[in-house]
Simulated scan of single mutants.
Amino acid sequence: MAADIRQSVSRRAAIVRIIRDSTVRNQEELVKALHRQGIEATQSSVSRDLRELGVAKAGDHYILATEEPLPSNHFAAVAGFVMGVRTAGDSLTVVKTTTGTAQSVAVAIDRSDWPEVVGTISGDDTIFIATEDARAQRKLRERLRENFRI
């Protein structure tokens, strides 16, 4: 168990170095870069590591999340990426973004700590946001409209 933890910490440190020092466009490139450094990794372990590290995708490459608190207008950096918002049922909101930017927008939403957001799942150009009920979903939609001017 301790060896697994050490291996995970070592792999994550290497991921940070790789992303900081080079342009990484996808998880496959990252797995290959880790292998070149002698670090065993799978796509699923890299995916989990990226999520835990708060790594976001900006356009066509990964960027490291800042360690500093986000400014009050942290949505300004990603507002232009949001193309639309629709609801699906009483507790699922779907946010459409420009290609390759959904993860960056989802990170901004996650870091906002809005109480109505239960969780987010992001793909390449789509974010699913779960809320507890229809009331929370309405509040979320208001916040999204305010912050993303949609």
Rank of each mutant, 00 (worst) to 15 (best):
G59T: 08
V118I: 00
G123F: 01
R86T: 13
A3D: 08
Q7D: 08
I39G: 11
V94H: 07
L64Q: 06
G80C: 04
S112K: 10
G54I: 02
N147H: 10
L50I: 03
R17Y: 05
N147A: 00
P115N: 00
S112A: 15
A130W: 05
S8Q: 15
V16W: 02
I19Y: 05
K139W: 13
V24S: 00
R138F: 13
V16A: 13
V107F: 13
V117K: 00
I5A: 09
I19V: 10
L140Y: 14
S72K: 09
A2I: 07
G84Q: 12
R111K: 08
G123N: 09
Q37L: 15
V94A: 03
M83N: 09
R25E: 03
A3T: 12
R17E: 15
A56H: 00
I150A: 09
T97C: 14
A14S: 06
G89A: 07
Q7G: 06
V78H: 04
G80K: 04
E40L: 12
D90A: 10
I19G: 00
E68Y: 12
R51M: 12
P69H: 04
A106T: 01
I18P: 05
G84N: 14
T120K: 01
G38F: 13
A3H: 12
I150W: 08
E29S: 00
A13V: 03
V9N: 08
D124R: 07
G84A: 15
E146V: 05
T97W: 06
L34F: 15
G80P: 08
S91R: 09
E68M: 07
I127S: 07
V117C: 00
T23G: 10
T101Y: 14
A77D: 08
A134N: 03
L50A: 03
I129F: 15
S47Y: 11
L30E: 05
S45W: 12
D21E: 15
K32F: 02
R111E: 13
E28C: 01
D110F: 08
L92R: 11
A134C: 00
V78D: 05
D125Y: 09
E67I: 01
